[in-house]
Design a protein around this nucleic acid. Structure first.
Length: 470
RNA sequence: CGGGCUGUGGCGCAGCUUGGUUAGCGCGUCGGUCUGGGGGACCGAAGGUCGGAGGUUCAAAUCCUCUCAGCCCGACCA
């Protein structure tokens, strides 16, 4: 007799599967105000792991953390014409405070280029002050009409990096360095999500940027998710906020700035890139809990053996949790950890214990193996590494299978039913982009023919990667 | 902002067409007993201004009016 599925199967209704998983894996709830979310402890622990890994890479790239205010004077936003035009539809504006109407409205930051540039102007005097490399971890607000937990919410958490450089080349090089050394490295090697790196077309560019780079990933339903961006802001904000420096020749010049960010959207990407009908699949390097040891029943000394094993595992390195809630049925607990995507589950109970054995189950393959307890620790290490590799390989294969090389707009429309379509940018162009928009298809990014990242959108031989997106 | 729909214990729903005694069901929660290697079984219990206001009526979850909130589909975005 088939057990009723815990989650709506992905093939039946992907959005519903996602919603079911958020609930059953205790990741997040809707907040009381439409578009807001409550991130539950397990969901937040995923974010904390992402923060730790990204933060380390940001610091390796030389940037320092700081904090700027949530509230920004409204007129700051207005100083950069494209910036305010891009963001005004989704601004939350404070008009009353302290029981009075405010003389000047205050906006809740949708991003912090403006306020940060204001302070860059104070801090930067000379070429000796450059580059200035700042990052902040913060919440931002962009009023959303179509919210979706983690993917698109009115308030979300992110890091935003802001840097100022002496030359356009320095700024561009740094934007690309962050793209590769921080974002690509993290997404591929930790999240096990293969990302396409490229440039945004003019229509998809950040409001106020000269040039936008992005990381695009394919979800299991074939749709694209933008997982991160970096921007070359040129001198646009420097001019708006008069951020200047004295160069080595004694000339006043405007600085060249960049900004770059990744957000809690990555949690949604993680869920939709790896999750299956049994629940979440968390790659080991990210997993807040890498190994869960389930004490099936505390008799015949099983509890003692389980606790000793947990200590040995902890000593060997992995992040381990003991589940000794023996008053909850085994099946329920097994299901729970499967929903939460814990990479390895070890079951210890009187049955195997009689032969000094325990059972090890891998989340991605579902394979169960019974083995002597004294082999468990070393096997965990090997299986964690194996799963990290296998999960990435599966995601790469899935993406490649669902990416088509095409030559016409109608082929793009067909191919994006299943995934991505690659077409020569010369054959598509801004006109083709408009035609695709009517079909809810967008150019996710422009790449060079070999898949590398272009340094301008006017290079010859660029390829447009098209898809439907979140 | 235009079009379609829904508000009933914590969650998901039935009941409404054709008003009628104590408003049901599943899941969850709590207590107990037996269980225990894939969402356990049985027994018992708690928990409801039927979104709100007004109206019709002997009588309203049910009919009427107004109102509020939310959801889904069409123009923007990490």
């Amino acid at each position: 007799m088939a057990r009723a599925p815990i989650l709506t199967p992905q093939s039946e209704d992907f959005p519903r599967w996602y919603q079911d998983l958020l609930n059953k894996a205790e990741l997040a709830d809707n907040g009381p105000v439409r578009g807001t979310m409550v991130i539950r402890p397990y969901g937040y622990s995923l974010w904390e792991r992402m923060q730790a890994e990204v933060d380390r890479r940001i610091k390796d790239a030389g940037a320092e953390n700081a904090y700027f205010p949530l509230f920004i004077p409204e007129d700051y936003l207005k100083r950069e014409a494209e910036h305010v035009e891009g963001f005004s539809p989704e601004l939350a504006v404070v008009t009353h405070a302290g029981g009075k109407k405010l003389e000047q409205p205050i906006v809740v930051r949708p991003t912090s280029e403006t306020v940060i540039n204001e302070y860059f102007s104070k801090w930067i005097q000379s070429y000796r002050d450059l580059p200035l490399l700042i990052n902040q971890w913060a919440n931002v607000v962009r009023w959303e009409l179509r919210p979706r937990i983690f993917i698109r919410t009115t308030e979300f958490l992110w890091q935003e990096g802001h840097t100022a450089h002496a030359t356009r080349d320095d700024a561009g090089a740094y934007a690309r360095q962050i793209l590769h050394d921080v974002y690509e490295d993290f997404m591929v090697n930790v999240l096990a999500i293969p990302v396409l790196l490229g440039a945004k077309t003019e229509s998809e560019r950040f409001a106020g940027a000269d040039f936008t780079y992005c990381c695009e990933a394919m979800m299991k339903d074939g749709k694209a998710l933008q997982m991160g961006t970096t921007h070359e802001l040129g001198q646009n904000f420097a001019k708006a906020f008069d951020t200047t420096f004295l160069d080595a020749q004694g000339q006043q010049q405007h600085v060249w700035t960049t900004s770059w960010g990744v957000s809690t959207r990555m949690v949604g990407g993680l869920i939709m890139a790896h999750g299956d009908d049994e629940g979440l699949v968390v790659p080991p390097r990210l997993a807040p809990i890498q190994v869960v040891v389930i004490l099936v029943r505390d008799s015949d000394g099983a509890g003692e053996v389980a606790r000793r094993l947990v200590d040995e595992l902890l000593e060997a390195g992995p992040r381990v949790k003991l589940d000794d809630r023996v008053d909850t049925s085994f099946g329920r607990r097994a299901t729970e950890w499967e929903l939460k995507g814990v990479p390895i589950r070890i079951e210890i109970g009187p049955r195997d214990l009689a032969d000094s054995k325990a059972t090890l189950v891998r989340r991605d393959t579902g394979l169960k193996e019974t083995m002597p307890i004294d082999q468990i620790v070393s096997r965990c290490g090997a299986e964690l590494e194996g799963m990290q590799t296998d999960v990435l390989a599966a995601a790469v294969a899935r993406r490649d299978e669902n990416t088509a090389e095409v030559g016409s707009i109608s082929e793009v429309i067909d191919a994006t039913e299943a995934g991505f379509a690659r077409i020569a940018w010369d054959a598509l162009g801004p006109e083709g982009e408009v035609a695709l928009a009517a079909e809810a298809i967008t150019v996710r990014c422009l790449q060079r023919g070999d898949g590398s990242v272009p340094e301008g959108d006017d290079e010859d031989g660029l390829v447009a990667v098209c898809g439907r997106s979140y």
